[in-house]
Simulated scan of single mutants.
Amino acid sequence: MLTAEQKLELHHAYWNKQELPRPLIGYQVGSQLISENFIPARKLLESPQQVTPEMIVVEEYYDDYQRMYEDSLKIEQEAFWAAVPFPGIPWIEAILGCPIYSTDGSFWAKPCYDDINQIELYLDQRNPWLEKLLEFTEKLVEFSQHRFPVGQPILRGPADLLGALLGQEKMVYAFYDHPETVKRLAQDATRVFIEVVKLIRERIPPFYDGYSFGWYPLWAPDKCLIFQEDLMALGSPAIYRQFFYECDRMISKAYTFTTIHVHPNSFFIVEDLIAIKDLKVIEINYDLGGPPIKEIIPLLLRILEKKCLILRGILKETDLEVIKKELPCRGLFLHIVVPDLHRGEELNKFINELYQIDEINT
């Protein structure tokens, strides 16, 4: 197994885009339905119901974090496993007023505005959902006892936030009926997003003189953040540039190391993302039912020309063979989702044989 010092060397090599024996690898063990990996969340999912902050008791989640941490030590990987505040909750949507409901293995935010002109976006420091998020962060830091880093949970960007607050259909109409209002609210949502991340990061100490992104177990030499614009799947390149491109530039400048999460149905924004100088990493989600690895290789190569890359998803042996043949190892991080430890160990053995290495080293 790699020592912490060896992992740090490999991460520095990743950021410097140096050639490596194999891509950096981190494993997510368990269900793809995030909430199902946490036993206390299951009782909230047993029947559809509204979820409120007091229903989430942080200490009840400790056993799951301990199990995930111990599992991470059993699989050879370059990643430092990171704890994040329960990632199933749409935190910022809740903070901005959306009622949160449980259904079908996950949690969702119900729109809370009928008219875009009713929306006012600002951060109330006394909001119970914000207080719960910060409490969760602080208690995870205490629970970690410096054994593992604490990072940022999934937080959605301005397009996703407006879609949650207003409803997706109404947001699309608003692009045409209220463009100036959309621009203003997108900027307001961006400021709220940055402030929420700032409050989280203020509570997280360094880990080996750096920080973990969190949801992606990638270590960085300085503070970092993750964001996404999944609802751009309802837009177009022109709509993205008109309403959200400048927002994403603002978010990307907020910290030294930033990454955006992108699904195949939003690939049309990737070229614009590559143009954002301060954006360090683009994460491509390899979706079930999406295009096969062979079809997205040109896009991945284009990203690697200018940025570092995270490729995340359920990767099979045939996918890994294509990656080995077509992609360089420099600047490439594979975040592989596996159902259990056995599958992780099986894939790790396959990857080492594929790259013809006996062990990971620099």
Rank of each mutant, 00 (worst) to 15 (best):
L162S: 05
I154G: 05
P153N: 02
R184E: 04
H178R: 07
Y176R: 04
D177H: 10
T181Y: 03
A174Q: 04
V182G: 01
E169M: 15
L166P: 03
D188L: 11
D188E: 15
Y173M: 06
A164K: 03
D160L: 10
K183P: 01
E169N: 13
A186N: 07
D177R: 09
Q187V: 15
Y176G: 03
K183Y: 00
G167F: 09
F175I: 09
H178E: 11
Q168N: 14
A164P: 02
H178C: 06
L155C: 11
Y176I: 03
D188S: 10
K170R: 09
D177K: 10
L165Q: 04
F175D: 08
P158L: 14
R156E: 14
I154M: 12
D160N: 15
Y173I: 00
A174G: 05
D160S: 12
Y176D: 02
L162I: 03
M171H: 07
A159P: 06
A174C: 09
P179V: 01
L161D: 00
D177V: 09
L162M: 08
R156Q: 11
L185W: 11
D188Y: 14
D160A: 08
D160C: 10
Q168C: 11
L162Y: 05
E180D: 12
M171T: 08
P179M: 02
V172N: 07
F175S: 10
Q187W: 12
D188Q: 15
G163A: 05
L161S: 01
G157K: 12
A159W: 09
T181W: 03
G163Q: 02
L161M: 08
G163E: 00
R156N: 15
Y173D: 03
L185F: 13
L161V: 02
I154Q: 11
F175L: 13
Q152S: 00
D188C: 15
L162H: 06
P153S: 00
K183C: 02
V182H: 00
P179S: 07
Y176H: 08
T181V: 14
Q168R: 11
A186E: 05
A159L: 14
P153I: 01
Y176V: 04
